[in-house]
Nucleic acid binder design. Structure first.
Lengths: 220, 220
DNA sequence: ATTATCTATAGATCTATAGATAATGC
DNA sequence: ATTATCTATAGATCTATAGATAATGC
């Protein structure tokens, strides 16, 4: 005799298990049976019952994971918009790294699944997860670099900071047989921030030197 | 009437198509039929004929891609081992970025497939592709940072430089509907090098300042 | 009556193989 | 005789659905 719960409860549980399974194994490598089993052994036919099909479940699982992750770690890291650019940079970096390091969020897992083999099902993913970080980094980096720095150089700086944030540390560690040490996300965030500020400062100095050189040559 | 080629020729062509397909779509998302089709329409039964099964083909495709990529871009970037550490750092960064940016190499595609959903079939991949880069970065970073810097800080520095190298720029761009601009790998390599050197310098300075502070306090 | 859950399965897809066919080298 | 290629298909796996069963709320 089947036990009976509230349907919404089962539905949410499926959503959660789905996000976690999709994050670990990707869309096509995850079967409905996997999800049902990870969900305390619910019947896999319930997936069709609640979501219609696997693709829809995937889409809803992404929205679920994304909404929850952003709620927990807002993009600015709680730093006020009128704070100095360097501090806002820290807020963005820390929020992003903490969010991606939170295994429960499933965010990075799903994102790397799409990077590795795009399903074409998650229209929003790129905007939510990658464009968004670059979007908040860009004006801060622009401000820190000032007007003397070339656009191309600014883009590269954004890309480098972005790279340090999105590196899939946890996923890489699952490839290691015996991971040697774990990185504390908070410490890593602080490190990335210092590294980034130093890199940006160097770019400004280099641009200034170049400018002076050019002016000198012109005056000769 | 079937045309007849040398078997080794067909075998190599399959290997090449396989590497490229696996890179684009991952192991399980790629069917033998996909590979056969990408390979100018050879018969898909030839995969079993030449490789036994799909898993073996996958393993051989990785070895093929890896061997070719390292041959084309040797890990030191051609910089002599007795060159100054900063120059060796440039060699390593440039070689790695060029290798990963070379779409023909299929290297990064397969690697990100494994990061996203490990098959357990490529024992060598982590050693070849990730441990290797960190292995060559580590002694160079150690040398540049010197003895005053804490081990944890050194690890983080290696991780940050590593991150800027392995970021899957091309794969991310396929998620964008209209990629805005392409990054020239050579220019990117030079940028990452500058960024990294500045970050490392800052770490040394910060460590020195901290040391002085500590000594001052001790003398009071 | 409605909602939640389960059973059973049709149909799609994919891999690997058995066995046929033909080109090549001896 | 050997090697390369092709045809056809058995067996595995997976998704989605039809239809049964039982708990709940009216």
């Amino acid at each position: 005799m089947p036990r009976r719960k509230d349907g919404a409860e089962t539905r949410d549980a499926i959503l959660e298990s789905a996000a976690s399974q999709f994050a670990r194994k990707g869309f096509r490598n995850t079967t409905n049976a996997d999800i049902a089993e990870a969900c305390g052994g619910v019947n896999s036919a319930l997936i069709s019952y609640y979501f219609g099909d696997k693709a829809t479940l995937y889409q809803e699982a992404w929205e679920f994971a994304y909404r929850r992750a952003v709620e927990k770690y807002p993009p600015t890291g709680g730093v006020a918009p009128e704070a100095p650019a360097a501090e806002r940079l820290f807020g963005v970096i820390e929020a992003d790294i903490l969010r991606r390091s939170d295994n429960e969020s499933a965010l990075n897992g799903i994102m790397y699944g799409e990077i590795a083999s795009p399903t074409g099902l998650l229209e929003q993913l790129y905007e939510d997860s990658l464009a968004s970080l670059r979007g908040v980094l860009r004006p801060i980096v622009d401000e820190l670099l000032g007007d003397a720095v070339a656009v191309e150089e600014k883009r590269l700086a954004v890309l480098s900071i972005f790279s340090m944030c999105i590196v899939p540390v946890e996923q890489i560690q699952t490839l290691e047989k015996n991971p040697q040490y774990a990185y504390d996300p908070e410490i890593r965030a602080r490190h990335v921030w210092h590294f980034a500020l130093a890199g940006l400062r160097e770019i400004v100095e280099r641009s200034n030197r170049k400018k002076q050189d050019d002016e000198m040559k012109e005056n000769l």
